[in-house]
Design a binder for these strands. Sequence first.
DNA 1: TGGAATGTTCGGCT
DNA 2: AAGCCGAACATTCC
Length: 276
Amino acid sequence: MPELPEVETVVRTLAPRLCGSVIARIATTASRVFRGRQKEIEAALAGKRILEVRRHGKNILIELGTRLLRIHLGMTGKLLFDPVNATHPRATLHLRNSQARVLVFDDPRHFGRFELIEDVSALALGPDPLEISPSEFTQALHARRGPVKSLLLNQAFLRGMGNIYTDESLFQARIHPLTPACAVPPEKAKALHEAMRRVLLEAIEQGGSSISDYVDAEGREGAFQSQHRVYGREGKPCSRCGEVIRRIVVGQRGTHYCERCQPAPRGIRSPVAGAK
DNA sequence: TGGAATGTTCGGCT
DNA sequence: AAGCCGAACATTCC
């Protein structure tokens, strides 16, 4: 579910209801959700006032004054004010002084995590794609040799890009996903920087992409999935040139692109269907 | 039934 | 020695 635009949307729905309220306690049905010692985290949360809710990459940070509660939604995690909508509740924050009585963490696949940290520096993430400058981005890109697709997904390189918005941005910038990062021409690097901004900002405006069951904390779906040009469109015609959208695997992730709009650079052979 | 799914982490190799 | 790659994590859906 959650890439930068979805997490940003969730944070925007959380903040007005959570800020200023007090966590009475956290109740847990799956201790796996905690990174760190469960007892310690439970004790540290009880009675704390929430001062601020913000996003750091794909992480939701809940400012408790002395420490931060970091929530990562993983692949299928949702935070819901209405517990009735939770199919696989893993943890429940009971709140005081809030419009909401509870906030439920619903997460079928158990990939999400709650963790206490002192500072965001502990997460060691790269710059936000909406904050990095074009020249910084180009410079960083040219220092790396792996496929540009994999690099954009690397949170230590850039924080917040996920599979959907990476594929969409590479399409917009007309860059083949297997292009070595250092081989992306400077003008295309600039185009990629612009494409990420455009795609991410538009997706935030649309409340994110609801491709399986993503909803924000109020249970509302996003609308950006209707704007996808390549992600999830394998076999369908390219909206720009009519060529069939292809799907390959790059770094173990499904990767969608248009072979005509995003031609393979010299020396890169796109995997052919049926090849071994 | 096998494969794929919005993601991260860890171990091993170079 | 950083960077890169693949396996693993758990569940649902088609």
